[in-house]
Amino acid sequence: MSKVSVNLSVNGSQHEVWVFPNDLLLDVLHDELGLADVRYGCGEGVCGTCTVQLDGEPVSACLLFAVQVTGREITTVRGLLGEDDSLHPIQECFLRHGGAQCGFCTPGMILTAHSLAERANRPSRAEIRYELVGNLCRCTGYTKILDAVEEYVDSRPSEGA
């Protein structure tokens, strides 16, 4: 088994990385590209701490091999930051509502919520809950996370409004 070259487009930057076919995208992002905001939590696709956006939609980086995503756009939570490292409005909402405690689930939570907001027109709290079921949090009890996401989606212009 030998390494192959893959071109990864992550947060708008291009990276040529040499990987083994069995290298998970999670490990390549975390260990090779130094993206510590993509985190191992279970390796089963259950917990959501390794969530990244693949062409704007959340996926588990622990269930994709790096060789699979050549030519696709990967976004991690760092990719939401402004050029001057400023917080994205959804990150501001999490900050304001105390939507993080230990912070381990936070990047995955934000990415999933962000993609929902991009896709859906002012989703309800129930719809937000449904979207976030795959991002487990053991610290907050979800209430403050939901408050944060609700404020963010409500702050966005409504379609057709």
Partner: peptide, 14 residues
């Protein structure tokens, strides 16, 4: 909190 929402806090595996 700021580091956590940015994803920039470095945990033990990082």
């Amino acid at each position: 909190f700021v580091d956590k929402v940015k994803g920039s806090l470095l945990y033990a595996a990082d």
